[in-house]
Simulated assay, not measured.
Amino acid sequence: MNHPYKKYETTELWHVISEAIEELVANQEVEEMTSREYIVGYFCAKLSHVEEDRA
């Protein structure tokens, strides 16, 4: 699936966030209303901007 966050897919950040969301969904603590790729990518982008601002 195409999404605007492709550049993050191979990062460690992507892996960690995806795993965390998977755990939350499995425990029924959150419900995914859009694609996992979009959710994970959104968080990666937001967190990457925080890191850039701190540099």
Results as ranks from 00 to 15, higher is better:
E51M: 05
H15G: 02
A45F: 06
R54P: 06
E37D: 11
L47H: 06
E29H: 14
M1N: 05
A45W: 00
E51L: 13
S35Y: 00
R54M: 13
E22G: 10
E37N: 06
Y42F: 06
F43H: 13
H49M: 11
E22D: 14
Y8L: 01
S48G: 09
V25A: 14
Y8S: 05
H15Q: 10
D53H: 02
P4T: 02
E52V: 12
V50R: 06
W14K: 01
Y8A: 10
S18R: 13
E29A: 08
E37M: 02
I39D: 12
L47M: 11
V25Y: 04
E29T: 03
Y8N: 08
V16P: 01
T11Q: 07
T11K: 04
M33E: 15
C44W: 00
E31Y: 05
H49A: 05
L13T: 05
D53S: 12
I17G: 03
V25Q: 13
L47D: 08
D53V: 13
V25D: 06
L47N: 11
E12P: 01
I21C: 12
N27D: 15
T11P: 10
S35D: 11
E31V: 14
I21S: 05
A26G: 07
Y42D: 05
E22I: 00
E29W: 15
M33Y: 12
S18H: 10
T34Q: 13
K6Q: 12
Y8Q: 01
M33F: 09
A55M: 07
H15W: 11
S18V: 00
A20H: 12
A55D: 05
E12W: 08
I21F: 15
V50G: 02
A26M: 02
Y5L: 05
V40M: 11
S48L: 03
T34L: 10
E9L: 07
H3N: 08
Y42P: 04
V50N: 07
N2V: 03
N27C: 13
K6V: 05
D53K: 13
L24K: 15
H3F: 05
L13D: 04
I21L: 15
G41P: 03
K6G: 03
R54A: 12
R54C: 14
R54Q: 13
E12R: 11
E12A: 10
T10Y: 01
E52W: 12
K7Y: 03
P4E: 02
H15V: 04
K46V: 08
E51G: 09
E52I: 06
